[in-house]
Amino acid sequence: MPDVLTHLLVGASIAIVYRRNGPRIEQMLIILGAVLIDIERPFSWLLAGTSLEWISLGQAFHSILGAVVLAYFAAACFQINGLDFNSVFKLILIGCISHLLLDMVMYPWAEYGLYLLYPLQLALSFNLLWPDLWWYPILGVTLLLLSLFMSHLLKIYHGS
């Protein structure tokens, strides 16, 4: 899986394009979703430290059902004026989906398990790259710059 920085940068890129004219708060909810899926990592590390390694924790959260549950729970933790629960949930879920798509790029996940259809333990992946390559954050920065450029072009085109 890519590091937190790469997930954050990809989430920010999507937020800039998708909520170009939206308030910062909406963009931040997408970024939150993009890193939220890995919230199990500290718990997994702690469990690993106590020899109670629970691999299912990571597998379950890295799934469509896991993304929906986490996005729902996270959305319930916010109370924002002018944004109803469904909008908050949707924005966080968009970020979560970006996280899953990015993780699916890497093929060792297919062997060890990106179970999108959890609890069905069917490993799915695009089988393209190894996880955790050092240049992933550079890819994230490139995407962010492209999205800023695209947003700027759209602003000029729409005159806003």
């Binding site: 059902l65 549950v69 398990g113 333990q121």
Partner: peptide, 19 residues
């Protein structure tokens, strides 16, 4: 969801490998 995780660990301990 946590209950589902625990029960699926107990009921379906093996994965279906596609790779």
């Amino acid at each position: 969801f946590i209950i589902l995780m625990v029960s699926s660990d107990l009921l379906f301990p093996y994965s279906i490998q596609k790779s």
